[in-house]
Write a protein that binds this DNA or RNA. Structure first.
Length: 122
DNA sequence: TTTATGGCTGTCA
DNA sequence: ATGACAGCCATAA
């Protein structure tokens, strides 16, 4: 196991990211930026991507519930992975429209209603 | 050490 | 609606 950053503002960032992702209810979605903010890493959506990418297979973290701000699955190294994400989401009742996008305004996870501004979504 | 890249986001055309 | 640009900063080489 890596020593990890034992100091600094980013100390233990990965565990925090995982903790937040784990709280996403089934059938709900969150964006990288949203996760980053909730994990105390505002503006570091990329790191969230790295954290999720580092997850082992068979993890209990629902990484598939994290998508980009457009509501679409980011292009990954292989089609298999992004397809898997879609399959998993559909298995939770999330519908994709043409273009492989989901209605974020409809599925967005709101840990605290009004925490993040997103128009008049409900 | 430096450099390049990137599972993103927000703004502007 | 889509496409281009610029910030952001951790990770990999």
């Amino acid at each position: 196991m890596p020593v990890a950053m034992t100091s600094g503002p980013t100390a233990g960032a990965y565990p925090r990211v995982y903790a937040v992702v784990r709280r996403i209810p089934r059938g709900r979605l969150a964006t990288y930026g949203q996760i980053a903010a909730l994990a105390g890493l505002p503006g570091r959506a990329r790191q969230v991507g790295y954290a999720l990418h580092a997850l082992p297979s068979g993890t209990s973290v629902p990484w598939h519930r994290v998508v980009n701000t457009r509501g679409s699955i980011s292009r990954r190294a292989t089609f298999g992975d992004e397809l898997l994400q879609r399959i998993l989401l559909e298995g939770e009742g999330v519908r994709f429209d043409a273009g492989n996008r989901v209605a974020l305004s409809r599925y967005r996870w709101c840990p605290r209603q009004g925490r993040l501004p997103r128009g008049k979504a409900r």
